[in-house]
Amino acid sequence: MIAWVLYDIVNDKARTKAAKVCKQAGLYRVQFSCFLGTLTPNQRDTLQLQLADLIDEDTDRVYIFPMSRSELQQTTLLGQAFDRKLVTDEVRALFF
């Protein structure tokens, strides 16, 4: 499944670790606190657990939104957009 991961984390160290965890999961950084990529259900669960360990539930927010490929193809991109080719299994494998 394609997933968007967005977060608002107050602590700088935790925010940096969250970005690292997202990159290690093979997600592509779209904006500073916004990642996009392909995850298996197991990878999604693992990522969710890792991010849950980093955040303060009283102050921080993390969203993991699933998205179908057809919805991604319908996305409107304005300005400096991300490269849609980076959101495929083949390219994601290059990150490892």
Rank of each mutant, 00 (worst) to 15 (best):
G26R: 09
T59L: 15
T38E: 14
G26M: 10
F32C: 02
I55Q: 07
Y28L: 04
Q31R: 09
D45S: 13
N42Q: 14
T59G: 00
V30E: 01
A25Y: 03
T59D: 15
R29H: 02
D56S: 06
L54V: 04
D53N: 15
L27S: 05
L54H: 02
P41R: 11
P41V: 09
L54G: 01
D58P: 00
E57Y: 04
A25N: 01
L49G: 00
D45L: 14
L47Q: 10
T40E: 10
R44A: 15
L54C: 04
T38A: 11
C34P: 00
D58W: 11
Y28R: 01
T38G: 03
Q43V: 02
L27P: 07
E57G: 05
L54F: 02
T40F: 09
V30C: 03
R29M: 14
G26I: 11
D45P: 00
D45Y: 10
P41L: 10
Q43T: 08
Q31T: 08
A25H: 03
N42M: 08
L36Q: 04
F32D: 13
Q48K: 11
C34I: 00
V30G: 10
G37P: 09
Q43D: 15
R44F: 10
P41E: 10
I55K: 08
P41D: 12
T38F: 08
P41T: 08
I55E: 05
F35P: 04
F35N: 04
D53Q: 14
Q31W: 01
R29Y: 01
L47T: 06
T59F: 15
R44G: 07
P41S: 10
R29L: 09
T46V: 12
A25V: 02
F32W: 12
T59A: 14
T59M: 13
F35D: 07
T38D: 07
A25L: 05
F35C: 05
F32P: 03
F35L: 07
L54D: 00
D56I: 01
V30T: 09
D56L: 02
C34D: 00
S33R: 06
L51S: 06
D58Y: 13
L49K: 14
T40H: 09
L36H: 03
F35M: 08
A52L: 13
F32N: 14
R29P: 06
F32M: 12
Q31C: 07
D53R: 15
L51I: 05
D56N: 14
T40G: 04
Q24I: 00
R29F: 03
N42L: 12
L27R: 02
L36A: 11
N42P: 00
P41C: 06
Q48F: 02
D53I: 00
T59Y: 15
Q48N: 08
L49V: 12
S33M: 07
G37A: 12
T38S: 10
S33G: 08
Q43R: 15
T40Y: 08
L36V: 08
N42I: 12
L54Q: 02
N42R: 14
L51D: 01
G37S: 13
L36N: 01
T59H: 13
D56F: 03
A25R: 02
P41Y: 04
N42W: 05
D56A: 02
Q50V: 04
C34G: 10
A52R: 13
T40A: 01
Q43C: 07
G26H: 07
N42C: 06
Q31S: 05
